[in-house]
Amino acid sequence: MYAFELERPKTLDAAKAALAGDEAQALGGGQTLIPTLKARLASPAKLVSLAAVEGMSGVKAEGDQLVIGGATTHAIVAAEAALTYPGLADLASHIGDPAVRNRGTIGGSLANNDPSACYPAAVLASGATIVTDRRQIAADAFFDGMFTTVLDEGEIITEVRFPVPQAGAYAKFVQPASRFALTGVFVARFSEGVRVAVTGASEEGVFRWTEAETALSGNFAPEAVDGLSVSPDGMIGDLHGTPAYRANLVKVMTKRAVAAAS
């Protein structure tokens, strides 16, 4: 690991200032970033831990939305969103393992946008809004391909606002070694329609499966997607699964998520 400074600002303003310099990078819970740094794939000059920033952690209901602070750990989401948004809490409770959930944060996960991470599926399927220190970004505009988002350098995710669906659930086919999603599907049913987001499968990162959304908006039942097929084109092929296998999983996991939500 290359040498770097580590700062732990207490306020958002201090965090912004710390991140203003060149090659500074925000550190959430570090559960992905630290192993990555160890493998020397990243070498920031300065890391700015957001863990101590006041007011960035916690889960609260605001109107019909669930608002989660950017530095909130998976463990807290799993515990505190359980009543208001059980599908989301369930997703959080199956990320990694308990020790990872005690450190990893929602903001860190979204900013990293690992193509196999779980949270992007929930955010996209829920039509959530990502709030940063400088703007609000709709989920549909946030993700920009594997490991890429529209966040600017030094931009900090302060909170994520989830509209709570009438029904929502996540089905994950676990890549057994890392416990990331080999393919994961989040299904959310709103009065205006169903949204389906798929993670882990596509080379473009998390995506909405619009054919399934149409079918499920008409009939919110697992068999509604029976007639659909998913092309392996553009699916990830790697040591953990072929594109054809992932394409198959997209459909199976969608059905499981619908079954869990209904």
Binding site: L6, R8, G30, Q31, I34, P35, K38, A39, L47, S49, A51, A75, D97, P98, A99, V100, N102, R103, A177, S178
Partner: peptide, 25 residues
């Protein structure tokens, strides 16, 4: 690589992997 759990300790009462946390944190 923060997978195996041989380094689990408690920080403020919670289990964490000591290989996936900086001392300064």
């Amino acid at each position: 690589t923060s997978q195996c759990g041989a380094c689990v300790v408690h920080v403020n009462g919670e289990a964490v992997k000591a290989c996936a946390m900086f001392a300064l944190e």
